[in-house]
Amino acid sequence: MSEIIIQNLISPVVLFFLLGIIAATFKSDLQFPKGLTEALSMYLLIAIGIKGGIELSHYHLEAVIGPVIGTIFLGMLIPVIVLMITRLFMKVDLKNSIALAATYGSTSIVTYGAAVSFLEKSGTTYEGFMNAMVVLKESPAILVSLLLLSIIERQQAVPTTLSSKRVGIVSGHQGLIDKEVLKESFFGKSIILLLGSLIIGLVVGERAIPMVQPLFIDLYQSVLILFLLYMGLTVGERLPEVKKHGIKLILFGVLTPILLGALGVLVGTLAGLSVGGATLMGILAGSASYIAAPAALRTSVPEANPSIYLGLSLGVTFPFNLIFGIPLYFEFAKLLH
């Protein structure tokens, strides 16, 4: 276990993220061109989506329908849970609450990789299609988060006394949804790139590998390093703002993964997964993204503070899951089985 922890903590992506924080802290003149950061975000969304689609194409629908439904369910439910916690109990502003909902609704690929290594070292088998669930969970989480943002902003901006024709759906309920909200949520560039790439990979399957491998597979880790360096710079510049929230954010970054991870293990068990598969479902639910969600938030919710959502995911939840979360979810999965 200590070897897994060390390997992940000294991985290039994490170290370059720390390098960015150091550069920003000491006021280095290191900067990224705006156009480059947009291109990196688009690249990562396409790469994550198409790789997951290709992986999912290897299996028949009957074999994956239960876990697929469970994964989508978690991706839709977790942002709502996180938004309620941050808004009602922590009093975090709307944009940062939405960012946390998207970040914790998505998952950490590095943490997932560490969990796979943990299972392999312990001799525990798991379902191979779980690799595709990593990507499948990203889209619902980001989509639901952006949809929640659109609904809440419209509630705040538009009086509820307006006619139903103008507002959309108004029946005395709090949820106000119209065509513009749905259009923005389903066809925003972050969502359409991630989900569209997943569908393309699923339809084309192995035939896509010769074309996409040189750019979207072989170069993925290198581009990820550049993106994490940029995010480190952004976090370092705004890190002092985290102090405004104090210990509440630290507790959120530790306690929330336990709650969500246990929920993920329960859903995985009910979906018929093995002990290993249920453990990985716990990781999907209990970890927080520092790739897909930040890439989407960078363009969709630029007002959100990266030092909060990325600082928590990498600085608190990531090491917690590596040290305590993975074995905790594993033991819970064994208990349920």
Rank of each mutant, 00 (worst) to 15 (best):
T234P: 02
V144R: 00
L259M: 14
P159K: 12
G232P: 10
I78F: 02
A99W: 10
L40C: 09
L310H: 06
L336G: 00
L61M: 08
S97V: 06
H245C: 05
G261H: 09
L284W: 10
L280V: 07
R207P: 00
I69T: 13
H245I: 09
K121N: 15
S2D: 09
L312E: 11
D29Y: 04
M211A: 15
V135E: 03
L215F: 13
G236S: 11
V14T: 03
P33S: 12
G20L: 03
L149R: 14
S41A: 12
P257S: 04
G246Y: 02
V223G: 12
I98E: 00
K91Q: 10
F318T: 05
A39W: 02
L239C: 08
L322N: 09
K244L: 07
A63S: 14
I10K: 05
V144S: 02
P140M: 06
L136Y: 13
G168Q: 07
M281Q: 11
I78P: 00
M211K: 14
V80G: 00
S145C: 02
A23R: 06
T111M: 08
F26E: 01
A157T: 15
I283F: 10
L195S: 05
A295S: 12
F16I: 13
T111D: 01
L228V: 10
A304I: 15
I283M: 05
L136I: 15
E303K: 13
D178G: 11
V13T: 12
P306F: 07
G172F: 06
L136F: 12
K183Y: 12
E180P: 09
A295G: 07
H245N: 06
L45C: 11
H173N: 10
T107V: 15
V170Q: 13
G75V: 03
I199V: 15
A333G: 11
V301I: 15
E55V: 04
Y112S: 00
P79D: 00
P319E: 12
T317D: 11
G246T: 04
G70W: 07
L202T: 08
L263F: 09
V265A: 08
D93V: 14
E303F: 09
I177D: 03
M211C: 13
I169N: 05
Q221A: 11
G66M: 05
P327G: 11
T25H: 15
G277V: 04
P240R: 01
L314M: 05
D93N: 08
G264Q: 04
I247C: 02
G105L: 07
L193M: 11
L94G: 01
A285T: 09
G282A: 02
G246P: 08
F17M: 10
K91F: 07
L94Y: 09
K91N: 11
S139R: 02
A295Q: 03
Y230G: 05
S190W: 06
T103P: 10
I326S: 00
A293E: 01
T71S: 07
